[in-house]
Simulated scan of single mutants.
Amino acid sequence: MATKRQNGDPPESVTTPKKTKTQEGEFNGAVFKSMLKDSSKAMKGLDTFIKMAKKLPSPELYDVVEGYIKISVECSEIFALLEEENNSEAELTLIFQSLEMILLRTASDLSQLSMVGSNIVRKTVSSHIKLLLSSLHSDNHRFVRQCLCLLSALVSQGAEAAREIFGLMQFSKGLTNLAQRRDKTGKPDVRMAYIQFVLSFLMSGDNTTIGQILDTKDFLSEILTNGLTDDRISIVNLILSTLQTRVVQNKTITKTQKVRFFSASVLRQIASLYKWNGIVDVSMDEKEKDEEAGRRIVRELVHNFLLDICCSRKHGISFHDPSLGTAGRVNG
């Protein structure tokens, strides 16, 4: 009976992973590379690659990202698609997202293949940065979001990449206005992608770049002075925690730099979070209503931040005044 069971149809619990592995085996790094070289299959290949990459890393799935970059360390097949003329925004979105999927992995669990990430940064900067930056002015919200996500992924490759990308940025009202492009339904929008892009420079850990970010008018401050009270709770937490750890508590950033950046107007906008009325997108305590719990959490976040920046003599913008209390003294 046991022999018949093995030769016959196995139970569903055994079939499922085997079927998954078979499907994955049909699309691997080599197949993807081959599809990219065929103009009739390239976009289908990119779409399949992205869908699989979003599920990775997973011990249950074939790693198509690792499989591809091990046999194409320059990702030349993807970049070859960028060389083609008259790519539509839909096609560019697929190309940019594929590169982003690779960069996110080389900056994390595939750090042993960081050379691939460096190659992507180098190739993008040398040949395609003009296309990428000009695409930020598109009216297509999804396309602009993807461009910003790719830029964030490029910065995530390390301090050198952060310095390189920052040096090429064209700071203008057209760029900072991206912080105001919001989806009123609460879906991930251009503003969110812009915030993550700006903060990626702080997360890079390169203190030279962080100092330059603070000195660049409107680039970082724009996310604080426009619509902060309407941001979802996860974004508010990301902004405040990143500023606190990478700027306020950063010993290499001088008090003078902090005073210049955290002006009265910027601090006023941060303080406005006491009246936060954004979207709750994290799990809350069941004992409280989401809106009430969300407001409480944001108030705690902003209160702790303001205590650090305004009251801490070690980290904040307050100075010791040696003349305090001596105004009435008379010199003998």
Rank of each mutant, 00 (worst) to 15 (best):
Q6C: 02
N7Q: 14
P10A: 15
Q23A: 07
G25I: 07
F27I: 09
N28T: 11
M35T: 05
M35R: 09
K41R: 09
A42V: 10
M43Q: 11
L46C: 15
D47V: 06
D47S: 15
Y62Q: 11
G67K: 13
E74Y: 14
E84W: 01
Q97R: 11
E100P: 02
E100F: 12
L104W: 00
T106P: 00
S111L: 03
M115V: 06
V121C: 13
K123L: 01
L133H: 04
S152R: 10
A153Q: 08
E164R: 10
G167I: 10
L168Y: 12
M169V: 09
S172I: 00
L175C: 00
T176Q: 01
D183I: 07
T185D: 13
T185M: 09
T185A: 15
K187P: 03
Y194W: 00
Q196A: 04
F197V: 04
F201S: 06
L202A: 12
L202D: 06
S204L: 10
D206P: 01
I210V: 07
D215Q: 14
T216H: 06
T216N: 12
T216D: 01
D218L: 09
F219E: 06
F219Y: 02
L220F: 14
I223D: 02
L228N: 08
R232D: 05
L238G: 04
T252V: 01
I270P: 01
L273T: 05
V282S: 12
V282F: 05
D285A: 08
E286Y: 11
E288S: 14
E288L: 12
K289M: 13
I297M: 14
V298A: 14
R299M: 07
L306W: 07
L307A: 10
I309F: 05
C310D: 10
G316T: 02
P322L: 11
